[in-house]
Simulated scan of single mutants.
Amino acid sequence: MARAKLTFKDINLTVNAPVGARVIDISEKVGTGIIYGCREGDCGTCMMQVEEGWNNLTEPSVVEHKALKENNAGRHQRLACQAQILGDVTVRPA
């Protein structure tokens, strides 16, 4: 299985994550500061800032795009419950 480096800037930790994994699943395993309330893409509590590797995440779904808009997300903010890893990426809680 292909793997990519996922760096959590808030805890200064880089892990090798399977390509296709959701950021929230890896975040939960290593104990970062990204919180969540659902995993469905509706609430927006798991908003994260993508520091590097923006293009190494899947495109936002319609549901995620709606939640980002409703939460006034910035250009490089994504929902950790929706974003899947495609390559090396660095994130932190928003």
Rank of each mutant, 00 (worst) to 15 (best):
M1K: 11
A2I: 09
R3M: 10
A4D: 13
A4K: 11
K5E: 13
L6G: 02
T7K: 12
K9E: 13
I11V: 13
I11H: 06
I11Q: 10
L13H: 02
L13P: 01
T14M: 13
V15M: 08
A17P: 01
A17W: 02
P18E: 14
V19S: 08
G20N: 02
A21P: 00
A21K: 06
A21C: 11
R22H: 13
R22C: 03
R22N: 12
I24Q: 05
D25T: 12
S27M: 11
E28S: 11
K29L: 13
K29D: 12
V30R: 08
G31L: 11
T32E: 01
G33N: 10
I34T: 04
I35E: 15
C38K: 07
C38H: 08
C38E: 07
R39C: 00
G41V: 07
G41M: 08
G41C: 12
D42V: 10
D42I: 10
C43F: 03
C43Y: 04
G44F: 02
G44C: 06
T45M: 13
C46E: 02
M47T: 04
V50S: 06
V50G: 06
V50K: 09
E51Y: 03
E51H: 01
E51Q: 05
E52H: 12
G53I: 07
G53E: 06
W54E: 13
W54A: 09
N55M: 08
P60H: 06
S61W: 09
S61F: 01
V62D: 15
V63H: 12
V63N: 14
E64T: 02
E64G: 05
H65A: 14
K66I: 12
A67E: 00
A67C: 15
A67R: 08
L68R: 09
L68W: 09
K69D: 12
K69H: 05
E70H: 07
E70L: 15
G74D: 14
R75S: 09
H76R: 15
R78P: 05
L79I: 07
L79E: 06
A80N: 00
A80H: 10
A80E: 07
A80F: 01
C81E: 08
C81V: 01
Q82G: 04
I85D: 02
L86Q: 14
L86E: 14
G87S: 09
D88Y: 03
D88S: 11
V91R: 07
V91A: 10
R92F: 03
A94Q: 12
A94I: 08
